[in-house]
Design a binder for these strands. Structure first.
Lengths: 349, 349
DNA sequence: GCATGTTGAGAAAAGCTTTTCTCAGCATGC
DNA sequence: GCATGCTGAGAAAAGCTTTTCTCAACATGC
């Protein structure tokens, strides 16, 4: 990091400079050159600095392919996903990258859509490139990628997707997340808490609904209504029409299965002249910044900590690659409630 | 791809099987084995099939590192981005991947945030891994990544970011996109067309505004008002308050600088009881599915064809890697108007 | 019967780095 | 004066594949 006058030399146009070039320049053998640059072996301090100087001057950069071939370790991992929009996989990827970049490990990102052929293509490419490991992720916890990763000969970690329990996986704790939301409502004094969520075909829908019911039961509060529909704003609006349609006791809080639904709910409430959070509190799920922050009012929501999840997955893969034993199983990572303004302060506070 | 009874053999637990193993199994030299598997050299058909059979049975997979070392080509490229949310970079990435995967080329995705240290770290890692080329992309055309890629010794292509004009770059044709939007309005009979867009610090804001003005001038229609503010829904709502505040002649069409602004505009118009598209037409920019499709009504918007842009970038990089000459310069790729329901049918139709 | 050509296959080098041996030269200890 | 040990540095192998030579065996042509 010296800031001397000498400009760093750039890689020459043609053939990249090799260790052999450095050795010749310094008048030593390649073996000695290698040792000098890796701070190993024995030699005069003078020899060592002369070689290092030559390397610097020539712009030498060791050939990672050769190193990898020798070390049987490519410092490369593959990440497989089918989440085209990156809503879930990008934060995971960010976490993985964060965990790996300082160890010199790079990540192949491969989107396999839901196409088995594409999946196989990418997996084959990864294996030929001798990735040290593979991280599989997805847009939906209860769906698998269209390719079997179970007997590949390299370590595999699943992130935000649940394979058979003998694998190593990191997923969000959806029950815990739902608890956070409902308990938040209860703490604020809300008593009639409804749940509007996505399609019944999603496992997380049931997990979150179950936790919602459990928390209410524990608190001795009435359960329901629970409305399952779509993951969209329009479903949120439709649900509000249902909830506030005919007399009955309208809820004073709505826990939504994702932020889009929550946004639809908030919009519909506003259009009915129902104050949020004054009359009704709303909590979403996902903390999808673009939706949650632009709601009126900004949305309190459950964040699944996907960056952390990715970081854990990355670090675990690293352990695995280093040969350290890792207990198989599915780890559920805690969620976090991001409080904005859609729930208000305690009613009786 | 035979579907015989024999199950494909999986990679063994320990050392991966090498060409040497195959050769020994088939009772030939590695040279012969190599030629057999690459359909090269001369040998009896019997020998060839025997070797291929052995390879298949043993689950042989050539070591890409060794191949790359020899061919001086890693079949790997790096993609650098600072677009954390992937709104722009993910479609570009998808296009790149699409162009490359069938050539067996994999992509390192590296998010450098806006951190020069991180940028250098990733670039160093890429160069050590001997990527065949680098694609730099970003979330904003008029900003560069925090790292200099100009003298790396590997081909570099810029996508959705504008470097010095001697590089090779692909960007969207923002002027063209704006023209599409405004001409669409004119074709529909709209006459008082306003423009609500983002911050003046963005180059694209001025480019689109310029095209907007040009089209109106060509059509002999009044220009303006042009409101520059933020890239957010709330700014869209604020702008509507300005436009429809005091008497004057309110616009019958609003061309918005992105989809979020457009959504804010639409919401604010609805809340004022102004019919979209009946009284006012709205066009957005970006075709960000999640925003555009959930608007009420769904948003007609300009799509920058980022997947195509990525594909072009990928294919061009491939040419470059193959040593084919590529004219330097900045290529502007056409946009496309995605018509949904926020503009209506022709007024006089 | 001999020169020439073809065929099938192997030896060896190349691509680049790291690591383990080996070894000459010199100093030390007794 | 000789055995021992250390020091500095190089030779060579290993890691895996591809490609260019080389070569023996056999066939063909005259």
């Amino acid at each position: 990091m010296s800031d001397g006058m000498e400009r760093d030399v750039v890689a020459p146009r043609g053939r990249p400079v090799t260790l052999r070039d450095v050795a010749k320049d310094a008048g030593v053998s390649v073996a000695t050159a290698s040792k000098a640059l890796n701070d190993q072996g024995r030699m005069t301090a003078e020899t060592r600095t002369r070689i290092q100087e030559a390397a610097r001057r020539l712009g030498f950069r060791p050939n990672g392919l050769a190193q990898s071939l020798l070390r049987r370790r490519s410092f490369t991992v593959g990440m497989l996903t089918n989440d085209t929009y990156g809503r879930f996989s990008l934060p995971v990827m960010a976490g993985i990258s964060e965990a790996l970049v300082d160890n010199g490990v790079s990540v192949f990102l491969c989107n396999v859509e839901d196409d088995p052929r594409l999946g196989q293509l990418h997996v084959d490419a990864m294996l030929e490139k001798r990735v040290d490991g593979i991280i599989a992720t997805g847009k939906r916890i209860d769906r698998q990628l269209p390719v079997d990763l179970s007997r590949l000969g390299v370590p595999v970690i699943y992130a935000f997707t649940e394979p058979d329990p003998n694998s190593i996986a990191f997923v969000s704790d959806d029950e815990g997340g739902a608890r956070l939301a409902v308990e938040h409502f209860i703490r604020l004094g809300r008593r009639r808490i409804a749940h509007v969520t996505g399609p019944t075909t999603f496992t997380v829908v049931h997990r979150r609904a179950e936790a919602y019911r459990a928390v209410l039961a524990e608190a001795g509060l009435p359960v329901g209504p629970v409305l399952m529909g779509r993951w969209s704003e329009s479903w949120g609006r439709d649900a509000v029409a249902e909830l506030f349609g005919e007399g009955g006791s309208a809820p004073d809080a709505i826990f939504c299965g994702n932020d889009q639904i929550a946004r639809g709910v908030i919009d519909a409430l506003r259009e009915r002249g129902i104050d949020v959070p004054g009359s009704v509190g709303v909590v979403g799920f996902d903390n999808w910044e673009i939706v949650a922050a632009e709601s009126r009012p900004p949305l309190t929501t459950v964040d699944m900590n996907l960056v952390t999840l990715g970081r854990e997955a990355g670090m675990t893969l690293l352990s695995l690659v280093d040969g350290k034993p890792v207990e198989p199983g599915i780890r559920k990572l805690p969620c976090r409630l991001v409080v904005r303004q859609s729930c208000g302060r305690p009613l009786d506070g």
